Simulated scan of single mutants.
Amino acid sequence: MSGDERLRRRLTDFVKAEAADKGFDLCRITGPDSIPDAPPRLADFLAAGYHGTMDWMAETEARRADPRVLWSDVRSVVLFGMNYGPEHDPRAVLAMPDRAAISVYAQNRDYHDIIKGKLKEVATRFAARGGADVKVFVDTAPVMEKPLAAAAGLGWQGKHTNLVSRTHGSWLFLGSLFTTVDLFRDEPERDHCGSCRACLDACPTDAFPAPYKLDARRCISYLTIEHKGPIGPEFREKIGNRIYGCDDCLAACPWNKFAASASEMKLVAREELKVPAIADFLALDDLGFRAHFSGSPVKRIGRDRFVRNTLIAAGNSGDRSLIAPCTRLADDAAPVVRGMAAWALCRLMTPSEFRQFAAGRADDADDDVRAEYERAKADGR
């Protein structure tokens, strides 16, 4: 082995050892040229409109499709995985109509901050050891981390389009380190999904037009997090009590049963977010929302979108004790809240109660809110 190869080996081993020391469960390496199928797949996804209102995906298409466009000097891409698997099946809360379901990843502190901090520690020590330039990314940058992670051997992209690991199932946070050093690469992981379609069949809204293809416009995670306006009536009942994200396709993956125990760095779910009461969230004003979700990824969608989601859960609950808080929200300053309050009350009240309630509100100044009352009237309410 030449001197250059010995240095490459030392640096390769060093970055993996640092990753383990900082609490990452997996660390593998690939090159910036390892995902040739990603650009056409991304182009097809965008052309079909599957990205919905996430315009930033189209705006960053070139950089997203090829790491070398994002940074021309990159020679190696180091992928990191952290297990965030729940202790129990997160779908259990779906059978509790008075409770709200929050996606497993959002029951913890914001993983972006924690993982990026750990990655920066690894990057700093690696750059000092190798004299190399480095950049670190966690989800928010235009990096196709899932295809890169598959190319590096962390796992494979399952039929639900998420990464699946033989050792950690479908529960992995991902981060990446780009470097100018030419490190030794790991072998990619092959697809182990076989004929299984558990994740596809688990989707409440049929968001998978085909295996390995996701139409985000139908995905509950997209609808409750990314989508800003009223959520279409055709999805509301199917959303159930999911107020932030959806774990159904992840939780259905059979590979979860082989998942190893989480690392010591595993993020611990906040107790009050495991099975929270819908009623508590309906009472949140903007200040209360910010305080309650301080340090949480939920905070980024804002109070109005969050209450919109919670009102859908209220409407699906059948719990008449929620009529009072929903009535108060029917006069909220935010149109998206008023509209969903009307929908929730239409489902919780008797027809006569709702007609009496709607009589003074059907002339709302907002088009979308008026449409909710008109739709209820057309349905015989």
Rank of each mutant, 00 (worst) to 15 (best):
A17L: 07
E18H: 04
D21P: 01
I29S: 08
I29A: 03
S34V: 11
I35V: 13
P36C: 13
T53E: 07
A62P: 01
A65K: 02
D66S: 02
P67A: 03
R68A: 07
V74T: 09
M82V: 10
D89N: 12
V93S: 06
A95M: 05
M96D: 06
I102H: 00
S103I: 02
Y105T: 03
A106M: 02
R109Q: 13
H112S: 09
I115S: 12
G117L: 15
K120E: 13
F126M: 15
A132I: 15
V134K: 10
K135G: 12
K135E: 15
T140H: 11
L148Y: 08
L148T: 11
A149Q: 12
A149T: 13
G153Q: 12
G153F: 08
Q157E: 14
S170R: 09
W171L: 04
F173M: 07
G175M: 06
G175Q: 05
C196K: 12
C196I: 14
A202Y: 11
F208A: 15
P209Y: 15
P211H: 14
L223M: 02
N241A: 08
I243N: 01
D247H: 07
D247C: 07
D248A: 05
D248Q: 03
A252Y: 03
A252W: 00
W255I: 04
K257S: 13
S263W: 04
E264W: 12
L267G: 12
I278R: 03
L282Y: 04
D285G: 13
D285S: 12
N309G: 07
N309L: 03
T310E: 10
A313K: 09
D319F: 05
C326E: 09
L329Q: 06
D332W: 11
G339W: 06
M340P: 06
R347H: 04
M349A: 00
T350W: 00
A358F: 00
D363Q: 01
D364S: 01
D364L: 00
A371T: 03
R381T: 00
R381K: 07
